[in-house]
Design a protein around this nucleic acid. Structure first.
Length: 906
RNA sequence: GGGCGCGUAGCUCAGUUGGUUAGAGCGCUACGUUGACAUCGUAGAGGUCACAGGUUCGAGUCCUGUCGCGCCCACCA
């Protein structure tokens, strides 16, 4: 006798042991050897590496569940599946976290010094690093933990260095003095992608710049000096102005080009230049040029040979290049001070409100300050071209497709990538500078040089900067497999197949991985990119730590189990649409998954309680004795297999989940289990019972396997306990059992038609019973006419189902007997009649119906009268009249239905 | 300023190339302790598919416009 299962599914009791079992048996491990030997097709998903500091949130829950569903599915299909896990060192993010910890200890990064600080970060990472990977286990992810990688581990650092050197040697990496996005809080450069635009309500300040010499035709100040007005959103930068620009064709200013302005406060002479970049329509048509603090100004100044003047410290305070009273002021304080000074001098024309978009640091949300500095860049155009071509040639497919256009647009307008960061946590830039007097050599090398190859000197200093985090992430699909060595893993598992990630990192990561894959491996790193939606709360806000509107997946696992979480998530993910979940009502949000888990559990429990034997015959062996219901459910299982497979193939997770759900609950549990109950009771006919048991076991076996990718734990728990099928080999785990194909369960059109007709009939009788208030315990007689061939066949075989499930007693064929009763017609035309004399109190029912009819009639008459009243129709608002008409129609309909019903009872 | 997406039941959403009577879960109503499951069962109510036009034998689905919501990109200071 098998151990009894609890009537309620208790996920906590089974999940951890099962996961341990899978892991211990090595099911998660992909075998490169098998692929290399041609014995298996690989299927590879590399995880989008979460930040080492990350704690699992619903976004991960969604993405990683999808990844695991795909992995488990392909594994069952016989592919050598590799789900490669790992984490990202997340340069700025991690450094910021540790800086905060250090600050809480009352110290600063600077006080600690570089070496000690980096040591501190490592300590932190070692302590907390594995957290999120541990959490992925809790939601059932079947990652190959033996291949876990970290972007800052030595092997991956080697890949990063190799790539840097190769690109440098190809001339695709260069160092230059340009305006970059600078975060004055993190004190580092950012790439364009790391500077996130946020709509901001700002001001547009109109400032008067007096001309250095008299100029006719311009407005003048009280002291007689002529002036031009420039408009700016950042008045504090005026102290760094080195010119004023106007459009060459602007009549208003044509005479001024070549003259000088006397820059207020700084009291410097700066030229007025003509540049076609200037927009005549904006502001006054005259623009101040601050080359060191604005990328456009920088370009313009360069065109005119004007040197930049840097007026800010890295912290965005004004430096010593500005006049005394402004020195040391923080940028926004400086803004106030400058505006006040202009006002005091009568040089402030006006201040307008001005809505614009300001770039913010994606890690700390500080307003980015454009800054002129020496940085390292990757020349992107040569890398973008192949990446664009690959997508256009269909080597990479995007789902949903629309993302392909966004990807292409970005690549078409690619800009160089600033990769140096003034941080301590990350891959150190492998560039060394010779300090020998008069040498100045720059050495870029795979190995740290000990002496200068130019002059032989040994005074080498390494570039203090580190590389952008994404400079290691973009190599992830091959750096994790051992590249630059030609390892067996690399040969077996590159390229991967499906990338599942959030659309937010399309540029940061996805596009760059495609570039790197093509550049260093000559092949795109994956065929399919599936971009998920965003998990939002009920107000449509993205779930985030700062808003406190997140859902902790582990809490859901604890409450309802990993399978409930996974099923809920999978069933709510429409193709590329956002997922909405209520953080304040986990019960409702996850009820679908929880209830379904329980249903699956109990159907399994039913089977285990009722199948007497430990072993059943295979379907083929009992084929002749299969009954209608048996043939029907096996045929329907084939349909489910087909739908689930097809939907997984096209990333239609919601539909796949729903197909499985509908089959399991709506067909297997609601109908098949109910119909076979008498056949598996003690005393049932042995042949019939054997057929039912075989079918039940076969059906459960099939649907459990179909459900396994989505609900790995519960399916394994039940599948392990399923009676054996004699003569059939069974794998030791459902994880590695074969995926059911539709062809395994041939369609049986007759069985479907016949059983379908029976379901219709049962449903109709139930509806009539309910409508006439027949007590559930009271049997009714049934008179059928115009019976279809299908129904006749069904009744010949499964009449007992009709009797039991619709509580039908006597069944007669022929026309109704003329007595009182309820009447209905099936879609197939079969006429159903239930004699009600003696079943319900006819007099009372007739009275009830008559009263109801009268009431309706009264309401209808009232409404009709109202509508006949011209005063009403002419004066009442149109929508009120319309509603009244609708009411009348509805009353009429109800009345007619009641009248028919009443006539049937007479 | 460009580009994209969304608007279907009270709520959250499906609806794949246009095709019977527009579906699901939750919620709601009535009835039900039938030995798998009350995290359940049976039945039911609830929809002008945002709005206005158009194409078509036929439109939730295709086209145009309007309104509302959201996202992405962009160097108008």
């Amino acid at each position: 006798m098998r151990e009894p299962l609890s009537p309620q599914y208790d996920p906590g009791a089974i999940e951890t042991p099962l996961y341990r079992l899978w892991e211990a048996r090595g099911y998660f491990q992909a075998r490169a050897g098998a692929v290399r030997a041609g014995r298996a097709d690989p299927y590879v998903i590399v995880i989008p590496p979460p930040n080492v500091t990350a704690v699992l949130h619903m976004g991960h829950g969604l993405n990683n569940t999808i990844q695991d569903v795909l992995t488990r599915w392909q594994r069952m299909r016989g592919r050598e599946a590799l789900y490669l896990p790992g984490t990202d060192h997340a340069g700025i993010a991690t450094q910021n976290v540790v800086e905060r910890i250090v600050a809480a200890e009352g110290r600063t990064r600077a006080e600690l010094g570089r070496e000690a600080f980096v040591e501190r970060v490592w300590q932190f990472v070692d302590e907390t690093g594995p957290t999120i990977l541990q959490q992925l286990r809790a939601i059932g992810c079947s990652c190959d933990w033996s291949r876990t990688r970290f972007t800052l581990e030595p092997a991956l650092s080697r890949a990063v260095r190799e790539v840097f050197v190769q690109l440098y040697e190809k001339g695709l990496i260069y160092r230059g003095n340009y305006i970059i996005n600078w975060c004055p809080r993190c004190l580092t450069a950012l790439s364009d992608e790391e500077a996130e635009g946020e709509p901001t309500q700002g001001r547009l300040y109109h400032l008067r710049y007096p001309l250095a010499d008299p100029a006719p035709g311009l407005p003048t100040l009280p002291d007689g000096r002529a002036y031009v007005v420039v408009a700016t959103t950042r008045p504090e930068t005026m102290l760094g102005d080195t010119a004023v620009a106007v459009h060459p064709d602007d009549e208003r200013y044509r005479a001024l080009v070549g003259r000088d302005v006397l820059l207020p406060l700084a009291e410097r002479r700066i030229p007025i230049v003509a540049d076609a970049f200037v927009d005549r329509e904006f502001g006054t048509g005259a623009v101040k040029i601050t080359p060191a603090h604005d990328p456009n100004d920088f370009e313009m100044a360069r065109r005119h040979g004007i040197a930049p003047l840097d007026i800010m410290t890295p912290e965005a305070h004004l430096n010593d290049a500005v006049p005394e009273p402004f020195r040391g002021l923080e940028r926004f304080a400086a803004r106030k001070a400058v505006v006040e000074a202009f006002r005091a001098a009568g040089l402030l024309e006006k201040i307008d409100d001005h809505a614009h978009t300001l770039p913010h640091c994606y890690r700390c949300d500080t307003i980015v300050e454009p800054r002129l500095s020496d940085q390292w860049f990757v020349r992107m155009a040569p890398l973008a071209a192949p990446a664009l071509a690959a997508a256009r040639a269909g080597q990479v497919r995007f789902t949903p497709e629309r993302h392909a256009r966004v990807y292409e647009h970005w690549l078409e307008n690619i800009r160089d990538w600033c990769i140096s960061r003034q941080l301590w946590w990350g891959h150190r830039i492998p560039v060394f500078y010779c300090g020998t007097e008069g040498c100045g050599a720059m050495i870029v090398a795979r190995e740290d040089p000990t002496s200068c190859p130019e002059c032989g000197g040994g005074a080498l200093t390494q570039d203090p900067d580190v590389l952008d985090t994404w400079f290691s992430s973009w190599l992830w699909p091959f750096s994790t497999l051992g590249w630059p060595d030609e390892t067996e893993d690399l040969a077996a598992f590159y390229p991967s197949h499906t990338l599942v990630t959030a659309p937010e990192i399309l540029f940061f990561w996805v596009a760059r991985m495609i570039m790197a894959g093509l550049e260093f491996r000559d092949r795109v790193p994956f065929q399919d990119v599936y971009l998920t939606g965003t998990v939002r709360d009920m107000e449509g806000r993205k779930m985030s730590k700062s808003l406190g509107n997140g859902i902790d997946p582990l809490e859901v696992v604890k409450l309802y189990g990993a399978d409930a979480l996974r099923y809920t998530v999978i069933s709510s993910v429409g193709l590329g649409t956002d997922v909405r979940m209520d953080p304040n009502d986990l019960e409702t949000t996850f009820s679908v998954g929880r209830n379904f888990s329980n249903k699956v559990w109990n159907a399994g429990r039913f089977a285990l309680m009722n199948v007497a034997a430990d072993e059943v015959a295979p379907v083929a062996a009992v084929a002749p004795s299969l009954e209608l219901a048996d043939r029907w459910i096996l045929s329907r299982l084939g349909v489910a297999a087909q739908e689930i497979g097809r939907n997984l193939e096209t990333f239609r997770f919601h539909e796949a989940a729903e197909s499985a759900y509908h089959f399991f609950w709506g067909e297997l549990a609601d109908w098949y289990l109910e119909v076979i109950k008498p056949r598996v009771q003690p005393g049932a006919a042995p042949v019939s019972r054997a057929a039912a048991e075989t079918t039940l076991v076969a059906t459960l076996d099939g649907i459990l396997r179909l459900l396994h990718p989505v609900m790995p734990f519960i399916t394994e728990a039940l599948w392990q306990r399923l009676p054996r099928v004699s003569g059939a080999a069974r794998s030791e785990s459902i994880m590695i059992a074969a995926w059911p194909e539709a062809a395994d369960y041939p369609r049986d059109a007759d069985a479907e038609a016949q059983f379908g007709e029976l379901m219709d009939l049962i449903g109709t009788v139930r509806a009539l019973r309910s409508e006439y208030g027949i007590a559930p315990a009271t049997p009714v007689a049934l008179i059928l006419s115009n019976v279809s061939a299908a129904l006749e066949a069904a009744l010949a075989r499964e009449e007992h189902a009709l009797r039991r499930l619709a509580r039908v007693g006597e069944i007669r064929h022929g026309s109704q007997d003329g007595g009182a009763g309820a009447h209905a017609v099936l879609p197939s035309g079969v006429e159903v009649f239930l004699p009600l004399a003696g079943v319900i109190d006819l007099d009372r029912e007739r009275e009830r119906l008559a009263r109801e009819l009268e009431r309706l009639d009264g309401q209808l008459r009232g409404t009709v009268a109202k509508l006949a009243n011209e005063q009403f129709t002419a004066r009442a608002p149109a929508d009120v009249v319309a509603r009244e008409r609708e009411k009348a129609d509805s009353y009429r309909e109800q009345r007619d239905r009641l009248a028919t019903k009443l006539a049937g009872l007479s």
